[in-house]
Simulated assay, not measured.
Amino acid sequence: MNILITNDDGYGAWGIEALIEAVSKKHNVFVIAPDGNRSGNSMCIHLYSSFKLYKKGEQKWACEGTPADCVNVALKGNLLNCKIDAVLSGINKGQNIGTDIIYSGTCAAAKGAVIFGIPGVAVSMQLACENDSDWNDRSKWHFESIASFVADNLEKLCSLCRPASGGKMPDEKCAFINVNARSLKSFKGVKITDVCFREYTDDKAEISFKDGSSDTAECVFLGGEGESDQRSYSDYQACKDGYISVSRVIAEPCSANDDLNLDSIGFSL
């Protein structure tokens, strides 16, 4: 298969390099990845504004845009001159579970793929110890283990996706696959999971006023660890228990009208 690999950590990040190496053994790999970290960009795209791409090697490009831009380039442009059969996004340095999925650039790339009609799989890994301070220690990140799982099971993972049919509305909601695991050399197994709800109680936006001005403020958003509440056997719990979590995630907007009754609301005109 012709596989596009992208991420949100940026071209050359540890996780994407491990995924490229593993998947290239069995498939024809193309790489279009952001030229820097684009974490938290979700589905942000450059609309009617240009951005540059830089050739990094045979079938490899770094992109000034976002993960969603990278998918657009591959699927809607003529840069690659071939049909892409699936999109892999990751391996993200850090988990993308539960509510994280909404913000994640990693997941956005997989989401964009299924909306455009091809399978999309997002892959993320978290340090084995939740309070581990060795975030920048490469020896603590066992990306190769999850990369091997994805490469060995790529066709199965793609079969679980529900891409749009020819880019048109499918009978069922479009869905991509979200894979998560702790940074372990081996796993107890694989679990099909629900997604947890993440409470970002320790996130903080720091506001400061510069040069004594009260008219201009500067903000820095500081993300925290977050707490995970579980509705059922969740992605969080599976990873904590030493398993690989595989979740099928709806990629398009879903209404929640089941408990709404127009007569009881009493809208006025």
Rank of each mutant, 00 (worst) to 15 (best):
L4D: 08
I5A: 05
T6R: 07
D8S: 09
D9C: 15
W14Y: 09
G15Y: 01
I16T: 12
L19K: 06
A22P: 05
A22H: 01
V23Q: 04
V23R: 03
V23N: 08
S24C: 04
K26L: 10
K26D: 08
F30C: 07
V31D: 03
P34E: 04
N41V: 11
C44Y: 10
Y48L: 15
S49E: 15
F51Y: 14
K52W: 00
K56W: 02
G57S: 08
W61L: 06
C63G: 08
E64Q: 15
T66V: 04
P67Y: 02
P67N: 05
A68H: 00
A68W: 00
D69Q: 07
V71N: 02
K76P: 01
G77I: 01
N78E: 13
N78R: 11
L80I: 05
N81S: 15
C82G: 01
I84L: 03
D85A: 09
S89F: 02
S89G: 05
G90Q: 05
I91P: 03
G94M: 04
G94Q: 06
Q95S: 15
G98H: 04
D100A: 13
D100Y: 11
D100C: 12
I102K: 10
G105V: 01
T106D: 02
C107H: 02
K111G: 03
F116L: 15
G117A: 02
P119I: 03
A128C: 06
E130I: 12
S133E: 11
D134I: 00
S139I: 07
S139Y: 09
K140M: 10
W141M: 03
E144Y: 05
I146F: 01
I146S: 07
S148Q: 13
K156E: 14
K156S: 14
C161I: 02
C161G: 04
A164R: 09
G166A: 05
G167E: 03
K168I: 01
K168Y: 05
M169L: 12
P170N: 02
I177Y: 03
I177T: 07
N178P: 05
R182L: 14
S183V: 02
S183R: 05
S186H: 11
K188A: 08
V190Y: 01
T193R: 06
C196G: 07
C196P: 03
F197I: 15
R198Q: 13
E199K: 14
Y200A: 13
D202V: 00
K204T: 13
A205S: 14
S208N: 14
S208G: 10
S208D: 12
G212C: 06
S214K: 14
F221V: 15
L222F: 12
L222P: 00
L222Q: 13
E227N: 12
S228C: 15
S232L: 10
D235S: 10
Q237D: 11
A238K: 09
C239A: 10
K240L: 14
K240S: 11
D241W: 01
S245Q: 07
S247R: 04
V249C: 10
I250N: 06
E252L: 00
E252A: 14
P253A: 07
L260S: 09
L262Y: 07
D263G: 02
G266E: 09
L269D: 12
